[in-house]
Computed example of a mutant assay.
Amino acid sequence: MSQHAPQTYEYNLDVAAADIDEMGHVNNAVYLTWVQVAVLRHWNRIAPKEAVAGHLWVALKHEIRYRHPAFLNDHVIVKVVLEKLQGARAFYKTMIRHGDDVLAEVNSCWCCLDAVTRKPVRLARDIVARFLPAEAASH
C-alpha cells in the first residue's frame, strides 16, 4: 500500500521521560497508547465531522509483538493501516519504528459505537468508501 493511501496514517514522536519504566525503556502500555492515538487520528482525519461526532471507537483486542525496546529521546514513527471493516469492527495493523528497527507490530480490532446509544453500529457506505474505496465499490 502506498504511504499516501487513504487507509493509512502515520505520525512521529520523541520518547518522553514519562514513557520510561523502571527498566529504563518505554513501558509496554505506552505502545498501546501510541496505537490508540494513531487509530483515532486516522478516523478523525478521514471521516466527515458529523461522523466523528456521532461515533466512538473502543478497542476489542490487541495482539502485540515487541521486537526492540525504545529509549528516552528516541524518534519513533507510528504507522497504522486499516486492513478491513467488517460490520461494526475495524481491523488495523500498526508498525512502530525507530530508524530501520521495527520496535513493535500490533494487530488490533476496534468496534464502532453510536455516540448516543453506545451500541455497536455499522458505518454508512459513503464513510466506508473514504477509508476503503475498493471495498465499498465491491458491496
Rank of each mutant, 00 (worst) to 15 (best):
Q86E: 13
A136H: 09
P120L: 08
G54W: 01
H25K: 03
N73V: 12
P133W: 04
G24T: 07
V121Q: 07
N107K: 15
E83I: 14
T117S: 15
A17E: 06
R67A: 12
D74S: 00
R125N: 15
H98S: 15
Q36F: 07
K93C: 12
D114A: 13
Q86P: 01
R130C: 15
N28D: 11
R41L: 13
A104Q: 08
I46N: 02
V26C: 02
R97N: 14
K84N: 14
A129L: 10
K61F: 00
M1E: 08
P48Y: 04
I96F: 06
L56R: 14
V35W: 02
Q36P: 01
L72E: 03
K79R: 15
P6Q: 04
D14F: 07
L40N: 07
L82I: 04
F91A: 09
A124C: 03
P69L: 06
D14P: 00
E135S: 14
R122M: 13
V106Y: 04
I46D: 00
M95R: 09
D21F: 13
K49G: 02
D74A: 00
Y31E: 03
H75T: 06
E83Y: 06
P120N: 06
A129P: 03
M23S: 01
A29C: 12
G24L: 08
V52G: 02
A115K: 10
V76R: 03
I20C: 03
H25G: 11
G87A: 12
N28S: 11
F71N: 12
N12H: 15
A124G: 04
Y11I: 10
W57C: 04
H75I: 04
D21I: 13
I64Q: 03
C109E: 13
W57L: 15
Y92Q: 09
G54L: 07
D101H: 13
V106S: 07
A5L: 14
V15N: 08
M1W: 09
K49Y: 10
I20E: 02
A53C: 01
H62M: 05
A104W: 11
A51G: 00
A129I: 12
S138V: 12
A70W: 02
A29P: 00
N12D: 04
A137G: 10
V39A: 13
V30P: 01
A53G: 03
W57G: 08
W110C: 11
N107V: 11
V52E: 00
Q7M: 13
H25T: 06
R122A: 12
I127L: 14
I64Y: 04
H98W: 02
V80I: 07
E105C: 05
E10Q: 15
D126S: 13
I96T: 04
V58R: 08
I127M: 11
L113A: 03
K79V: 09
N28F: 00
I46P: 02
Y11R: 11
A59C: 06
C112W: 00
D19W: 01
V106F: 05
Q86D: 14
W57T: 08
S138N: 05
P48N: 06
I77S: 15
Y9R: 09
P69N: 07
V128M: 10
L113T: 07
A29F: 06
N28G: 06
V30G: 01
E22G: 09
E10F: 09
H25F: 04
Y31L: 09
I127N: 03
I20S: 03
W110M: 09
A53I: 00
A5R: 14
D21Q: 05
W110L: 07
H68F: 09
V37G: 01
Q3S: 14
C111E: 02
L123S: 05
L85I: 15
